[in-house]
């Protein structure tokens, strides 16, 4: 389905310009990390690329037809959305939606519950678990369909070190088994560990887009340099 092409993409909310125009190509493989100050438009860009908000202009295209491409994407939201169901049923939900039989869906879900260390909590209602546990469920639920493209919006924003390590391990594994990842983060350390490419956003625009090494060694723009140095970018 790659490359993904965003062409002249922009988003408006009630006449207010939020992001764009953005031109962007993402090819298969690797982890693209989206960085930038609060309100830069990271969440909006991710949702626009995923196709769940209306574009004011432009389009996102894939090498495969839109419908096929849509079916091979998952999205992990900034604050995890838990269905009011058990952990297991949350994990199985995307499979059930895609008409897999209940039995095998539940087996897959169990495998994933064990994998994220929640096998003891499988039957507990997911909305009542801790933030870190919910985030892991959200990620496992996104990965359970083996998507070709995975979007994550600050997947470790409110997690401690241990939980962050677990999430990063799951992401690395997904990436090595053929999932292309686009994620936003405020954690520069995480970006250094994970990124193969960096997209730096500022004021609804892409300020810089380069390979991760290059981005951190010789920041391509002024704002990016300040951001990496830990200065406040406005």
């Amino acid at each position: 389905m790659f490359p993904m092409n965003a062409c002249n993409l922009s988003v408006k909310v009630r006449q207010k310009h939020i992001i764009g125009p953005i031109n962007l190509t993402i090819s298969e493989g690797g982890i693209t990390v989206l960085m930038g100050p609060n309100g830069a438009g990271k969440t909006t860009l991710l949702k626009a690329l995923h196709g769940i908000i209306r574009l004011a202009n432009g389009q996102v295209t894939f090498a495969t037809p839109a419908k096929t491409a849509q079916e091979q994407q998952s999205f992990v939201f900034q604050s995890p959305i838990m269905l009011r169901r058990s952990v297991l049923e949350n994990l199985a939900y995307p499979l059930v939606i895609n008409r897999q039989d209940k039995q095998s869906a539940m087996e897959r879900a169990q495998t994933w519950a064990t994998k994220i260390g929640l096998s003891a909590h499988m039957d507990r209602p997911a909305p009542f678990l801790s933030g870190g546990e919910k985030q892991k469920i959200a990620l496992a639920r996104a990965l359970i369909t083996s998507p070709k493209l995975l979007f994550l919006d600050e997947p470790t924003a409110s997690l401690d070190g241990a939980a962050t390590v677990e999430i990063e391990a799951l992401l690395s594994e997904a990436q090595s088994t053929g999932t292309t990842i686009i994620m936003s983060t405020h954690n520069i350390g995480q970006a250094r560990r994970m990124a193969s490419r960096v997209l730096f956003m500022k004021d609804g625009q892409i300020d810089a887009h380069s390979a991760a090494n290059a981005f951190f060694d010789t920041p391509p723009t002024d704002a990016a340099q300040k951001f990496i140095a830990g200065d406040i970018v406005l």
Binding site: H50, I52, F75, F77, I81, L83, Y93, I97
Partner: peptide, 22 residues
């Protein structure tokens, strides 16, 4: 649920079923 169910390409019918059940 909105963002999640939209993201998962649920059909209208699946959305209604999910809401009624949950």
């Amino acid at each position: 649920y909105h963002d999640l169910l939209i993201s998962m390409n649920t059909s209208k019918w699946q959305r209604i079923k999910t809401l009624l059940w949950d």
